[in-house]
Design a binder for these strands. Structure first.
Lengths: 127, 127
DNA sequence: ATCATAATGATAAATCATTATCATATTGTC
DNA sequence: GACAATATGATAATGATTTATCATTATGAT
């Protein structure tokens, strides 16, 4: 049985809201900055504690990109990949997937999953 | 003008050999372990220093995978991606590439490059 | 409103990969 | 072979991220 976090605090509500509203993988600092608009004075420790709780509950997942510290997004999304803007550093969700990478597999290897990351400029950064 | 490392030492020779022989991206510790078979007593600092020198020379490149510290491979290979064995942790080079990911791009975004990582079991680990 | 206790914020501590330091050893030039 | 200078190995220091600590505050059940 999932225990979950026991109390509903302003901080936790703000963090969940921010993750739902921005709808892209966020670093702990991005979460903090956005959540402070709702709860000024929030501390980074609360962000780390809450993210850890959300992961344990299963309501968030971590998103690891090459050479980057983990970001976090709400769980329950369908299979997808990510876009990393090389200018602003934000990460966005992508739809679609080439699906079959088996033609790249050496003989005798078996594949379980894959990751695709696209890099470039996001809409905002191209304006 | 590339300066390069000034002296040819047993350690540097061993590190270059190991990278050429194993022909897959290696972590500094993997380099150390393999190179110690050729030069017992080699220290990890020498591995880091030599890898840094190889990068500056342009004769090695770093390979970043999600959630992992950088690995290093010799430069000059053509466009390729990597396979990460979930059992032994070794990373292998893959041939081939789906090539076109533009169908995944949101409107208004521009892509510059991409990374693909396959995860699964390598030949050795399936035996 | 009271109260037990979980949660918070500030910050110290832990982690882990990488780099700097420095005494000693090695290289390669003469 | 001698010598100046670079390289090495051991390890301390660093930097970045994450976790632990603890006094104080807020939650929610009564």
């Amino acid at each position: 049985m999932l225990r979950g976090m026991e109390r509903s605090t302003r901080q936790r509500k703000a963090i969940r809201e921010v993750m739902a509203e921005l709808d892209r993988p966020l670093s702990p600092n991005e979460v903090l900055e956005a959540a402070r608009h709702k709860v000024p004075g929030m501390g980074i420790a609360t962000v780390y504690r809450t993210l850890k709780g959300l992961l344990e509950e299963g309501s968030a997942v971590s998103v690891e990109l090459p050479g980057e510290a983990p970001r976090y997004e709400l769980a329950g999304k369908k299979h997808h990949h990510h876009f990393h803007c090389t200018l602003c550093g934000k990460v966005f969700e992508l739809e679609g997937c080439p699906g079959d990478f088996s033609f790249m597999l050496p003989k005798g290897f078996k594949t379980e999953k894959h990751e695709v990351v696209l890099y470039g400029r996001c809409l905002e950064c191209l304006k």
